[in-house]
Structures are given as structure tokens and as C-alpha cells.
């Protein structure tokens, strides 16, 4: 509640608490970026940004990991975004109401399913399926991408649903009076009108997919190489950090993981700023 007549200064302790968040944020940034920078300088001769990962030849290039991170999150985002949009349409009048209610319950429940449980179930259900049907080890881009797409659906779908609902409330009567079916209203009016929200859902979904660690580590196979086919194994930046740290190796590997942390942090900042920008654009539009 904003206070109406010139609000008095807040108690000092409350202000301190609130701004301690800024302090913690700066601490995280300082530690991660400083160690990434010092790793980059120390590892000058190890071609840390190069495309070659060959520890025996003293080459610790992060190229394959960056490639894998971008590829995996982009592909799972495409699939997940389409799935979310489809679910939203079903919720907003394409499907029968009882089914919509069940689907909404399922989506809400999905926000509570831990990522590690998705990964665990996929290791014992999806991976053998892929192995038997398509060959290979089963731990591949396809497995990780599928689960990442499914896991991202509830977040995106709930954002989209809020947006579509508010636009639909505005145009529902007019569209019905013009004789449009719910499907036509959605496809011709509501979805085009809520484009900024759909974009911001996509941006947030991309950030989530980029930062996820468990699913790529458990399902993508973790071989360091440039994956091209969906059945290839790949290792993302996040998985790289987890694997190298838990294996407790020193030297070039360690430097590369510090650098990977810095890259991920910068990536997440870019995503957050972009999401804010998109949503500010939509507030201006509404005003």
C-alpha cells in the first residue's frame, strides 16, 4: 500500500535489510566475475574459448559446451513454447471446460515436481525407450531436450494464460457478437494482441532452460563434442561445472569451469534485462 500523504522515512533496520539484498547480489557478481576473469588471464595459453577440448594436449576450449548449451536451450524452448501455447488455447475455450479444469490442475501440480524427479524418471523410462527405438546409448540431446521442454511448460503456460485471459476478457463480447467462434477469436484477435507477453514468456523460458543443470547432466550423456544429430551426446556449460567440480580435478579444467560460471552469469543477466525490457514495452503499450 503506498501511503497517501508523503510517506515518512522507513525504520533504519528495515532499509538495511532491504538493501542487504543489493549487497548480496553484488557479492555474488564480484566473486563469480572476478574468478572468471582471473581464470581467463591465468589460462591464456590454454585457449579457453577455443573449439577444442583435449586435456592431454593442454587445450581446454569451452566451445563445445557453449554450443551445446545454446543448442539445447533453444531447441527445448521451441518445443516447450509451442506446447505451452497449445495448452493455453485449450484452457481458453478450444477444449471442453471440464478438460480445461483438469489441465489447469495438472499444470499447477507440475510446478511442484522437482527437476531431479523428472530426470530420475526419464533415466529409467525415456532413455531405454530411445535406446531401443532409435539406437545409441539413449543419453542424448533428444532425451534432455524433451524433458527440458516438458519441465518448462508450466512456467510459460501460466504466464501466457494470465495474459490471454486478460485480453480475452476485453474482446470476448465483441467477438461473440461478430459471430466468431472461440477458436477464431483466439487465433485472429487474442494471440496477436498478447504478443509481448508471449515473447516475455519465451525469454524467461530460455533463461530457465539455459540455467538448468540436472536434466542435461542426467540425460545428455556429457561427452564433450559438437553435437549435430539429436542422438548425439552433449555437455552443457551447467553440466560442465557440476561434473568437473564433483570430480575434483585441478588445473585447466578448474579454470574452464570458473569461466563457464562467469559466462552463465552474464547470460542470465542478459536474459533478465531483456525480459524487463519486453515487459516495460508492454506496460507502455497498455498506458
Amino acid at each position: 500500500m503506498r501511503i497517501v500523504f508523503g510517506s515518512p522515512p522507513p525504520p533504519l533496520w528495515l532499509k538495511t535489510l532491504a538493501f542487504s539484498i543489493g549487497g548480496m547480489l553484488s557479492a555474488v557478481f564480484a566473486f563469480i566475475l572476478f574468478s572468471a576473469l582471473s581464470a581467463a588471464f591465468q589460462g591464456g595459453g590454454l585457449s579457453l574459448f577455443g573449439p577444442v577440448w583435449a586435456p592431454y594436449a593442454e587445450k581446454f576450449g569451452l566451445g563445445p559446451m557453449i554450443h551445446a548449451s545454446l543448442l539445447l536451450s533453444a531447441s527445448s524452448l521451441c518445443a516447450g513454447w509451442l506446447l505451452s501455447l497449445g495448452c493455453c488455447c485449450l484452457l481458453r475455450g478450444v477444449g471442453p471446460r471440464c478438460f480445461a479444469r483438469v489441465l489447469m490442475g495438472i499444470l499447477r501440480f507440475m510446478t511442484a515436481i522437482p527437476t531431479v524427479v523428472y530426470g530420475f524418471a526419464a533415466v529409467f523410462a525415456l532413455v531405454p525407450l530411445i535406446r531401443n527405438a532409435l539406437g545409441g546409448s539413449g543419453f542424448c540431446w533428444l532425451a534432455a531436450g524433451t524433458m527440458l521442454a516438458v519441465q518448462g511448460v508450466p512456467t510459460m503456460a501460466l504466464i501466457m494464460d494470465g495474459a490471454l485471459r486478460s485480453v480475452e476478457n476485453d474482446v470476448f463480447l465483441t467477438a461473440a457478437a461478430l459471430g466468431m467462434t472461440p477458436l477464431q477469436t483466439l487465433s485472429r484477435v487474442v494471440i496477436p494482441a498478447s504478443r509481448p507477453w508471449l515473447v516475455s514468456a519465451a525469454v524467461l523460458g530460455f533463461g530457465r532452460a539455459l540455467g538448468d543443470t540436472l536434466l542435461p547432466t542426467m540425460l545428455a550423456g556429457n561427452a564433450v563434442r559438437f553435437a549435430l544429430s539429436p542422438l548425439d551426446s552433449m555437455r552443457t556449460l551447467t553440466a560442465h561445472i557440476g561434473l568437473v567440480l564433483s570430480a575434483d580435478i585441478g588445473g585447466g579444467e578448474n579454470l574452464s569451469l570458473l569461466l563457464a560460471g562467469g559466462l552463465l552469469l552474464l547470460g542470465s543477466v542478459a536474459v533478465s534485462l531483456l525480459a524487463r525490457r519486453v515487459s516495460r514495452g508492454r506496460n507502455d503499450e497498455a498506458a
Binding site: G211, D212, L264, S268, A275
Partner: peptide
Amino acid sequence: VDLLAGIPSIVMGLF
């Protein structure tokens, strides 16, 4: 708060 919310959990672990 937005920036903090965007930080991936593995980066927080690395911190």
C-alpha cells in the same frame, strides 16, 4: 531482485 532471480542455481552453488 530480478537479476538475483535470474541467476541459475548452479552459479549460486559455484558462488
